[in-house]
């Protein structure tokens, strides 16, 4: 019996299929843990057995050691980076949903702007980081750190906009006919149907959007040298302290995964009528 089958059974016959779900979930967690441990052991073994120079090829133990030493600086820098990434992310999210609503409500405008949106979404926006920093510095030199916020918005906005557009347009003919039948206004279409039907798409955009906002901020700091994780990473790499660089990247990875997991939790609460794709069945 597959996990999906047992899930269905579980919901129909309370108690009946539950045990197998718990088991398979436990097995999944155990396998994931085992995978991580095996990978770390392999990495440590290669580094030790080949006698690699820890300055260039640090082992997991070296990385942990570096993390410990760099921790005070890291915790100083982290709030700056997180503030820019989270605030930029939220601005991009609100903007993308609002813009998508306006565009879906005005099909002509949408058609006119679509080439631009797809175009901007396709270019490596991160390559324009120096330009963003330059322009923000042009407005106010004392607020260069704002460029990191702008970077988060700039990198995360377009993919989230496209996700929201897809979401709001995700409406089947029958539902469209029903709305036309009752003479629903555009706002009513959104209020009663589109905002809900769009949620799965919007949440997918939100998950990748946060990772993008984080990248945007870190690269912004990297290039502008304003205090934060990005500039920290850039300086330790300059010092060829690879262990510390890996430690910093790991911390960022944990934070991003944590936020994505949080978004996923909100999603599964909000979209109770369908399963999310990213985490599989629970």
């Amino acid at each position: 019996m597959t996990a999906r089958d047992s899930r269905t059974l579980g919901s129909r016959v309370p108690g009946g299929g539950r045990i197998s779900i718990e088991n398979s979930r436990l097995t999944r967690w155990a396998l994931s843990g085992l995978g991580v441990i095996l990978l770390l052991v392999f990495w440590q073994a290669v580094a030790t057995l080949l006698g690699l120079d820890p300055q260039y090829f640090p082992s997991p133990i070296d990385v942990m050691d570096a993390l410990q030493r760099t921790w005070p600086t890291l915790t100083d820098a982290l709030p700056h980076t997180l503030a820019a990434a989270v605030v930029g992310y939220l601005i991009a999210l609100v903007l993308s949903i609002f813009t998508a609503m306006v565009l879906v409500a005005n099909e002509r405008l949408l058609n006119a702007l679509m080439p631009f949106i797809i175009g901007v979404n396709t270019v490596p926006r991160i390559a324009l980081t120096p330009l963003v920093i330059y322009w923000v510095g042009f407005i106010s030199l004392s607020a260069t750190f704002l460029a990191n916020y702008v970077m988060a918005v700039w990198v995360a906005f377009f993919p989230m906009l496209i996700a929201a557009l897809d979401g709001f347009k995700n409406i089947d003919e029958a539902t469209e006919n029903m709305l036309a039948m009752y003479g629903a206004t555009t706002w009513q279409e959104f209020k009663f149907v589109r905002l809900r039907k769009g949620l799965p798409f919007i949440f997918d955009g939100m998950k990748s959007g946060f990772i993008l906002a984080m990248i945007g901020t870190v690269v912004g700091e990297f290039v502008s040298g304003t205090f934060g994780i990005g500039s920290m990473a850039s300086s330790v790499i300059g010092q060829i302290a690879i262990g510390r660089a890996i430690a910093i990247v790991l911390v960022l990875g944990f934070i991003s995964s944590g936020v994505v997991f949080l978004i996923y939790q909100i999603e599964s609460q909000l979209i109770f009528w369908q399963e999310s794709s990213i985490m599989g069945e629970e």
Partner: peptide
């Protein structure tokens, strides 16, 4: 309609009242 158009996030009663909500607002 040919196929059910009940909205998945609304209970049976709330689905039933959807046309009323729309028509009343208008």
């Amino acid at each position: 309609f040919q196929h059910p158009v009940a909205l998945e996030w609304r209970t049976v009663r709330k689905n039933l009242l959807l046309p009323v909500q729309i028509l009343k607002e208008n």
